[in-house]
Computed example of a mutant assay.
Amino acid sequence: MAYPTFTVTVTREDNLWVAVVTDGLEPGVVGAADFERFAEIDPEMREIISDLTGLGEGEFHVAWHYDIGGEEGSRLVDEYRQAEEVAAEMAEWRDTARGNLITALRGKLSERAIADLLGISHQRVNQIKNSPVGDVDLVQVQGRLESSLNVVRLLAEDAPPAAPPRTRRKASRRVRA
């Protein structure tokens, strides 16, 4: 079954985010709202579309377009959102791996040595040690990450070249003989 797609254009006007359904609704039906916070737009616009069409929130797609300062910003906003998803999944994986490592090293190394190994404070090691560690399905995480990275690669193909990274000067140490 093919789900209908509704196009929503988002702009910034008078210190508010303005979202308007620009395609997909019946003629004469207007779906629009103002928002103070960007994070409110997606769930609220889906609810508005659902109310106007009678479709359940999972029975349609939304194509987002972002007009920022008179310029099309959809690709950049989509790229950022995708990067946030990848970062969140990576952080979850890191946190679980770190917790598992701390659990495995408990009693074998001091908290200070574990902290040094992980590059965090010994107080943070103690906090992590005393919190529950969740299991992460690495196959599922890997699949989601690969999918997200493929989207990021596609978006990056159209992106302008990035500025070269700034290099850091290596600190030198004096060794006394």
Rank of each mutant, 00 (worst) to 15 (best):
M1K: 08
M1A: 13
A2S: 14
Y3H: 11
P4L: 12
F6W: 02
F6S: 12
T7R: 13
T7M: 11
V8T: 07
V8R: 10
V8F: 09
T11E: 11
T11G: 09
E13D: 10
D14K: 11
N15V: 03
L16W: 12
L16D: 14
W17S: 12
V18M: 08
A19K: 00
V21C: 09
T22E: 05
T22I: 06
D23I: 04
D23S: 12
D23M: 07
D23Y: 11
L25F: 06
E26F: 02
P27S: 10
G28S: 06
V29P: 01
V29E: 02
G31H: 02
G31L: 00
F35V: 02
F35E: 02
E36D: 12
E36S: 11
F38H: 05
A39C: 03
I41W: 03
M45I: 04
M45K: 10
M45W: 10
I48R: 01
I49R: 05
D51N: 11
G54F: 03
L55N: 09
E57W: 04
G58V: 08
G58K: 08
E59A: 13
V62R: 02
W64Y: 07
W64M: 04
W64R: 02
H65F: 09
Y66E: 01
Y66W: 15
D67N: 13
D67I: 03
I68G: 09
I68H: 14
G70H: 04
E71M: 15
E72A: 14
E72L: 09
L76Q: 14
D78P: 04
E79V: 10
E79G: 13
Y80N: 08
E84H: 10
A87V: 07
M90R: 15
E92K: 15
D95P: 00
R98K: 04
R98P: 04
G99L: 00
L101P: 00
L101K: 07
L101T: 01
I102M: 00
I102C: 00
T103A: 15
A104P: 00
A104D: 06
L105Y: 03
G107I: 03
G107P: 02
L109C: 06
L109S: 09
R112M: 07
A115D: 00
A115S: 00
D116H: 11
L117H: 10
L118Y: 00
L118T: 01
G119P: 01
S121M: 01
Q123N: 12
V125I: 04
V125G: 02
V125L: 01
Q127K: 10
K129R: 12
S131N: 08
S131G: 08
V133H: 02
V133L: 03
G134H: 00
D135M: 05
D135K: 06
V136F: 10
L138E: 15
V139S: 15
V141K: 06
Q142L: 08
Q142H: 10
S147P: 06
S147C: 09
S147Y: 11
S148V: 05
L149E: 07
L149F: 11
N150T: 15
N150F: 13
V151C: 14
V152I: 09
R153T: 12
L155M: 15
L155N: 02
E157P: 14
E157D: 14
D158H: 14
A159V: 03
P160R: 13
P161V: 13
P161A: 13
A162F: 06
A163G: 11
A163Y: 08
P164I: 02
P164E: 07
P165L: 05
P165G: 07
R169Y: 09
R169T: 14
R174D: 05
V175P: 03
V175M: 13
R176C: 06
